[in-house]
Structure formats: C-alpha cells, structure tokens
Computed example of a mutant assay.
Amino acid sequence: MAEALVIQDTTYAGEAASYFITRPVIEMDTVQKGCIHVHDGIKKQYTIPRIEVSGFMQKRAATPSSKGNINVDGKVLIPRDMMLYLEFNPRDYEQHWQAVNLEPKLLDRELPPTAEDFTVLQTMKRLNEFFENATWKSRIMFDPEGLAVDPTTKGQAATDVQYLYFDGLIVKLLQASETVKVSSPATLVSGTAGGGQENILDAMGRAYKAVPQAILYKYGAKGLKFHISYATQQIYEEALTTQTFKNNDTTEKGINRYKGYDVVPLAGMPDNTIVICVSSPDLDSNPWLGVNSTEDQDGLQLARLQANSELYFIKGLFKMDTQFGFPDFVVLYTTITL
C-alpha cells in the first residue's frame, strides 16, 4: 500500500512558522445551517413513524357506523458503512524542516506535534466536506464494484463518482413517486433564457406555485426554505441586481429571501437544483440524516500501525443514510435524472 504522506517542500533557508496553513474547504452547511435533523444511535436501521387520519366526517346518526382511516407507516433510515484510512511514515519528515522537531531516538519517531495537529485538522475538514457533498449527491449505483453507473449519464459531475456509499437526498426524492417534481427543469441562468436554459426567477416562481398548501406561509427557522447551491445562489443574486426595477444597493449583501421565505445556499447541493421544504435541526424537519453516532464524526484514530512497524495510520469508521419524512411535501426542481 502506497504511503499517504508526500513531502514536496524539502528546502529550508531561514525562519519557518510554527504552524501550517490549510487549504480552505467547504463546510457541512446542511447541518450547520440547521437544514436537516441528524438522528444518531442507529445501530442497524431506524423507522421514522408516520400517522395519517382521513375520511372521518359523516352525517349524524343515532347509532353511527365507523367511517374513516387511521394509517400508520414509516420511512426507514438504514445507515451504510464507509471508512477513512491513511497510512504514513513519520520519518518522511526527516527531509522537511520539521525534522528538528522529531524525537531523538529512531524507535520513537512519530509525527511532530504541530504536524500531527494540522494533519488531523485538515483531515477532519476534508471529511466534513465529503459528508456535505455526499448528503445530497450520493448514489449507491455509482459503486464501481456494483452497477458502476457513470454520474454524467444522470446529469451529475464526473467527480460525484466518489459519493457511492449510500443514497443521498436528491436520489431519494427522485425515487419517491409522491415527490412534487417541477416539469421541464433546465440550466439556470440570470439573464435571458433559451436553448435549454431558464431564468432563475422563473424557475423559483414555477417551483413556488407547486408548494402544497399545508406548508405555505410558514416562515422563519422552522418554516419553508428554498435550498440551492452556491453557484445557483450567485445566479440568484445576479438576477436580483440586474432587474429593471430594484430597491437594493448592489454593493451590499442582499436579503436572502424569496417572497418572505428563507433562501439557503448549501455547499453540497448540486447546481441547477431547487429543493423547497420545511427543514430544521429538530424532529419537525422533513429531511433526516441517520448516523451510527455523531461522535464518529468528531474524532479520528491516530496510532502506530503495529508494534514492529514504523508506520502510523489515521482511521475513521462511519455509517450514514438520508431520508425524507414526507416526500409529498417537498418540491424538487432539478436537471438530475433517476
């Protein structure tokens, strides 16, 4: 197995900072912005119980007969396994300026404290980036050892092939026949549409008209939200600032709302996609994220590979799945196909 640690900077000609700078990465927006309920403690599977009552009204009778239905069912979360595993040799730092911080004895060589801290820090950041993208874009069918489906044939980026361990929120909506799907979705633009394109404001308007009445006019943190990607957010902002009649200063940050409803840009959302639903971090949320334990995401194991080895490893074990409580109360506009 190839070692993960590659030292490219072997020069040292003066003072060096006592820290590393880390490349910016996207964060797990969907959780941090309160757009999903995270349910942990799922060892095998978890059923989100649902209940519905209907058809109960009737004419008055002295001795009535029962009329109506009470239906109890559920949506299932089945977290699936995945892992993070890297091996490296701390002695590779002997060719780096961090060599001065290595243990004197060869048998005791491990990562210098600064290198260890920032290695784990950046790994955690990249892990959260992966989870954010996977929450929305994952498909089991991308697995090269399974169906080996090319993501580009489904309207997704070729790089989405890495999200293969469970089915994400978008595919769950596409699979559910009751999802409110907006017809004829197209590539979103801020200017004049045409040739397979649609103006972002027109698309949001069509999607908004499809929202079920039961969730209309519910605003705020626990209300209806428009979920879009960062790129779509930029298109939306451009559309607002290029309208003939506008009332905002184009040099200022705009109010991120559509007809009073919050518009939430999420780093993991695919482009040309709008998801409208009630989302929150509590049990009232329509989208759910099921995990074995939230503590699995909070820490990684860093240790020597084995007693007679100089190698070390970083390891993490995770189980995740996504689900919607009521797909019939979710409006989906997307160019992604099933």
Rank of each mutant, 00 (worst) to 15 (best):
D92A: 15
D92S: 12
E94F: 11
Q95K: 13
H96Q: 04
W97A: 12
Q98L: 09
N101I: 02
L102G: 07
P104I: 00
P104K: 03
P104H: 01
K105H: 12
K105V: 13
K105D: 15
L106V: 14
D108W: 03
R109K: 09
R109G: 04
E110F: 05
E110A: 10
P112V: 09
P112Y: 05
P113G: 00
A115E: 13
A115V: 13
D117I: 14
F118R: 09
T119I: 15
T119C: 10
T119L: 15
Q122F: 03
K125E: 11
R126F: 10
R126C: 10
R126T: 11
L127W: 08
L127P: 01
E129S: 13
F130C: 01
E132H: 04
N133P: 01
T135R: 02
T135I: 08
W136I: 04
K137G: 02
I140V: 11
M141V: 15
F142L: 03
D143G: 05
P144S: 02
E145N: 10
G146R: 02
G146A: 04
L147P: 03
L147K: 15
V149D: 05
V149S: 02
D150C: 05
D150G: 04
P151H: 00
T152V: 06
T153R: 01
Q156L: 10
A157I: 05
A157H: 01
T159A: 13
T159H: 04
Q162R: 13
Q162H: 04
Q162M: 10
Y163E: 00
L164E: 08
L164V: 07
F166A: 10
D167Y: 01
G168E: 01
G168L: 04
I170D: 07
I170L: 11
I170G: 06
V171K: 08
K172G: 04
L173A: 05
L173N: 10
L174G: 09
Q175R: 12
A176F: 04
A176K: 04
S177K: 12
E178F: 12
T179P: 00
V180C: 08
V180K: 10
V180G: 05
K181W: 00
V182P: 03
S183I: 09
S183L: 06
P185N: 02
A186L: 15
T187R: 05
L188N: 04
V189H: 02
V189A: 03
S190Y: 14
G191K: 08
A193W: 03
G194P: 02
G195H: 03
G195P: 04
Q197P: 01
Q197L: 10
Q197R: 12
E198F: 01
E198D: 09
N199K: 12
N199V: 12
N199E: 09
I200Y: 07
L201F: 14
D202L: 11
D202T: 15
D202S: 14
M204V: 00
R206T: 13
